[in-house]
Amino acid sequence: MITLDEFDRRLLALVRQDNLLPARVLAERVGLSLSAVLRRLRRLREEKIIVADIAIVDPALTGSALTMHVLVQMQQAGPQTMDAFARQIARHAEITGVWEVTGDDDFLLKVQVGSMEEYDAFTRRALGEDKGVHSFTTMITIRNIIENDIARRPLRD
C-alpha cells in the first residue's frame, strides 16, 4: 500500500477540485517548493493514485440534460455473464458510469440523455434486448448537488 503524507493529501484535495491549477499555486497552497510539488504530482500519477486528468462537462449544455441512475439485476451473476454485460453496456454513448454493486442488483449505471424518448430508446436497445438482464429500476436525478457544483466550491486548505 502506498503511504500518503499530509502534503500529498493536501495536494490531492486541491487537484480534485481543479487539476488545472498551476504548480506554483499548488506549491504556495501546500507549503512546498515548486520542484517538490512537481515531483509529488509525477509520483502520484506514476503510482496511479491520480488515475486521470478529466473535465467535468455540463450535460445540460451538451444536450444530455437528463441523468438516470439505473439498477440492473442479471439473470445469473457468474463472472463471464457479468464481464460480458459490463463490456457490452460500456459501448453505449449514453453511459457515463458503470459500477458492479452488492445487494439485490448487480450493476449501477449512470445514463445521460436529452429526453425521455431517448432514454426509452436506450433501454429498449441496451437493456431490453439483452437476454442476460432480468430486470432494471430507473431513478431520475432531480438535482446534481456535488458534481455540477464542484468547480464553484471554495478550495479548502
Results as ranks from 00 to 15, higher is better:
residue 1 M to F: 06
residue 2 I to T: 13
residue 3 T to I: 06
residue 4 L to W: 01
residue 6 E to V: 12
residue 8 D to A: 04
residue 9 R to A: 08
residue 10 R to I: 04
residue 11 L to Q: 14
residue 12 L to I: 11
residue 12 L to P: 05
residue 13 A to F: 02
residue 18 D to N: 15
residue 19 N to P: 03
residue 20 L to I: 08
residue 20 L to W: 11
residue 21 L to R: 13
residue 21 L to Y: 09
residue 21 L to P: 08
residue 23 A to D: 14
residue 23 A to S: 09
residue 27 A to S: 11
residue 27 A to F: 07
residue 28 E to V: 09
residue 32 L to S: 04
residue 32 L to R: 10
residue 34 L to E: 11
residue 36 A to N: 07
residue 37 V to Y: 06
residue 37 V to K: 03
residue 38 L to K: 14
residue 41 L to W: 06
residue 43 R to F: 00
residue 46 E to K: 06
residue 48 K to V: 05
residue 48 K to I: 01
residue 48 K to T: 04
residue 51 V to Y: 03
residue 52 A to V: 01
residue 52 A to P: 00
residue 55 A to N: 03
residue 56 I to S: 08
residue 56 I to R: 10
residue 57 V to R: 12
residue 57 V to G: 04
residue 57 V to T: 13
residue 58 D to L: 09
residue 64 S to V: 05
residue 64 S to C: 05
residue 69 H to S: 10
residue 71 L to H: 15
residue 73 Q to V: 05
residue 73 Q to K: 15
residue 74 M to C: 10
residue 78 G to H: 10
residue 81 T to Q: 13
residue 83 D to Y: 02
residue 84 A to P: 00
residue 90 A to C: 10
residue 90 A to T: 04
residue 93 A to T: 07
residue 96 T to Q: 11
residue 99 W to R: 14
residue 100 E to A: 14
residue 106 D to E: 09
residue 107 F to I: 06
residue 112 Q to S: 10
residue 113 V to E: 01
residue 114 G to N: 08
residue 115 S to Q: 08
residue 116 M to V: 12
residue 117 E to W: 00
residue 122 F to D: 12
residue 124 R to G: 02
residue 124 R to L: 06
residue 125 R to G: 01
residue 126 A to K: 11
residue 126 A to H: 09
residue 127 L to R: 02
residue 127 L to T: 06
residue 128 G to N: 03
residue 129 E to D: 09
residue 130 D to S: 03
residue 131 K to P: 05
residue 132 G to I: 03
residue 132 G to H: 05
residue 134 H to M: 14
residue 138 T to N: 15
residue 140 I to M: 12
residue 145 I to M: 11
residue 150 I to K: 05
residue 153 R to H: 07
residue 154 P to F: 03
residue 155 L to N: 01
residue 157 D to N: 14
